[in-house]
Amino acid sequence: MFKRIITRTKTKSFFLFGPRSSGKTTWLRHVYPKKSNLWIDLLDPKTDRLLRQKPETLAEMIRIAEGDFEYVVIDEIQKNPVLLDVVHGLIFEKKYKFAITGSSARKLKRGAANLLAGRAFRFECHPMTHVELGTSFDLDDCLAYGSLPEVIELSQKDKQHFLRAYVDTYFKEEVVAEQLVRNLMPFRNFLEVASQSTGKILNMNNIAKVVGVDHTTVQNYFSILDDTMLGFLLLPYSRSIRKRQRAKSKFYYFDTGVQRTLTGLIDAPLNPESPEYGTAFEHYIVLEFKRLISYLKPDWRMSYLMTSDNVEVDLVIERPKMKTVLIEIKSTDNILSLNRQKLSGYKKLAEDFKNSESYVISRDQTSLMEGEIKFIHWSRIFKTVGLIK
């Protein structure tokens, strides 16, 4: 098993949210083994049926459990959100500690759940980072097939089979089964259109026309993907929170392999000279920052920047009490081949943006400085900005 860097507490109850197959259950089984913890598995039909009929049975199951246990582990809580009312009482009255996994905070909010009113911490689980994969990491493989734990050690053909099954059974069926959407066909169309919009500034009206639904429905679809951690919106940078919320966002799926499957390109080779490779590389870097910030620096904030004269910065990282980081992402393995004229706007912005550090990251191992901009290999940026040690 790969060593995960998922955050946890040893003294409080907590939620662990993450997409299906991101490794939540595997991690919990390793950290909270059944010999010293009480497991309540809602994927077991008998247990699920019993607790749906009588949620209060949970308290009795815990009471009669033999031996001492450190945590009560409840897997996939979104299958029965009403249980959280029982859990809340047990934390408050009996002082039990719970480790609770889920893949749909949206269903919990709608289903009953007060999310334990601050009595439980919230942590996240994502696909594998390059840090966790260590010597098993392969950039081109992660760009093409993503880094869901179950994908990593499969053959190329099996990776493709797994990802198609994942998209068909989870994205297109279970989201409907969990009653997050009622009409499957427009949602399926939306998933494909959203995959083609990865890393682009969203035009909700255009997407609504293509999908055949109204603007509000498209906004709701994006909200579903965000709440189920299947994707996220990258907001535009602004010092004004109000302006940040009103301006157009970018969208990224949670995994590059899933995104390529939704576009129908999972069989297609990813040529380093192609525009598709550049898109996948930018997508992957954004995801790595998203994941590592979630685990290690949750107070940092990510955004992108588009200036009034159309200079775009792929990532802006705001770090409390530290300089803001500007990052332009290039997939080239030869930074000397970059068109300096196209970078002139970024160079000017780097000079004018107060209290900031500016970078161009790429696959080139060469490091150099041009004006206020540092050119470095992508793998070094995370340590350089203080995200990892």
Rank of each mutant, 00 (worst) to 15 (best):
E372M: 14
D138C: 10
I91A: 00
T261H: 02
G67L: 04
V286W: 12
I241F: 14
R188P: 00
Y253C: 05
F98D: 01
N355W: 11
S103L: 00
W27V: 07
R4H: 05
S195W: 09
D138A: 15
G111D: 07
D141R: 13
A105R: 06
D75Q: 03
E66Y: 00
F121L: 15
R239L: 15
L287N: 11
I388M: 08
S337G: 08
F14P: 04
N203S: 11
T9C: 02
M306T: 13
V82R: 11
K10R: 10
V385C: 15
L115P: 10
A113S: 15
L305K: 05
F121D: 15
T384R: 15
I77Q: 06
I152Q: 15
S13I: 00
F375N: 04
L368P: 03
F281Q: 09
V72Y: 04
S303R: 02
E351N: 13
T135G: 12
F123H: 09
S13Q: 03
A59W: 11
F162Q: 04
E70D: 15
H161F: 06
N355P: 02
D68R: 10
D364M: 04
D158I: 04
K159W: 04
V360N: 03
I373E: 08
L43R: 06
D214P: 11
D68K: 12
K54N: 15
T216P: 03
P19S: 13
R63Y: 08
C142F: 05
E318S: 14
V313D: 12
K323Y: 07
P33H: 12
G18K: 02
A105Y: 01
K172F: 10
L50V: 13
E153C: 13
A165Y: 09
G67P: 02
V258N: 01
V176F: 10
C142I: 08
N189A: 09
W378I: 15
D352V: 09
S13A: 08
F187T: 02
T129C: 14
